[in-house]
Amino acid sequence: MRRLRVRSPRGAAEWSAAGVVGLAGLLLLVRMTAAALTGLRAAWPAVLVVVLCAAVVVAWRLGRAAARRQRDRQRQADLRITLAEFDAMDDRRFEYALRDLLVRDGWPARRVGGGGDQAADVIGDHLQRGRIVIQAKHTRVGGKVGSSVMYAVKGTARPVHKAEHAVVVTNGAFTRDATVWGDRHGIHWIDRERLRRWAESGAALHELLGLPARSRPVRFKRAA
Rank of each mutant, 00 (worst) to 15 (best):
G143T: 02
S148L: 11
M150F: 12
Y151G: 04
T139W: 02
R158D: 12
V145K: 01
V160T: 14
E164T: 11
G155S: 15
A136D: 01
P159G: 05
A163L: 03
E164A: 11
I134E: 04
K144C: 06
G143E: 07
Q135H: 04
H138A: 03
K162P: 03
A163Q: 05
K154Y: 13
S148Y: 12
A136K: 00
M150K: 05
K162D: 11
G143R: 02
Y151C: 06
G155L: 10
A163R: 01
G143N: 05
S148C: 12
K154S: 13
K137A: 02
G142I: 00
E164K: 07
G155P: 06
Y151A: 09
T139A: 08
A163K: 02
A163F: 04
Q135Y: 02
A136Q: 00
M150I: 14
V133P: 02
A152Y: 05
G155W: 06
A163D: 07
V145G: 04
K144A: 10
K144W: 03
K162C: 14
S147V: 15
G142A: 06
M150S: 09
M150A: 15
V160S: 07
K137R: 10
G142H: 01
P159T: 09
V160R: 15
K137C: 02
I134P: 04
A163E: 05
Q135I: 00
G146F: 03
V160Y: 15
Q135W: 00
H138M: 01
P159W: 09
A136M: 02
R140K: 12
G155D: 15
V141M: 08
V160F: 15
I134F: 12
G155T: 10
V145R: 01
V133G: 04
I134W: 03
A152W: 04
P159D: 10
K154P: 03
E164Y: 07
V153L: 13
V145Y: 03
H138G: 01
G146T: 06
K144V: 11
R158G: 13
A152Q: 15
E164I: 02
V149H: 09
R140M: 08
K154F: 12
K154A: 13
R140I: 04
V153A: 12
K144Y: 05
A152L: 11
V153E: 04
V160K: 13
V153T: 07
S147D: 10
V160G: 05
V141R: 13
H161Y: 09
K137V: 01
G142M: 01
R140C: 04
V145S: 04
P159A: 09
A152I: 03
H138L: 03
H161E: 08
G155A: 15
T156C: 09
G155M: 12
R158T: 12
A136T: 01
G143K: 02
G142W: 00
V153S: 05
R158L: 15
K144F: 05
V149C: 08
Y151V: 10
I134K: 01
V149G: 01
M150V: 15
G146V: 04
V153M: 06
T139P: 00
A157L: 10
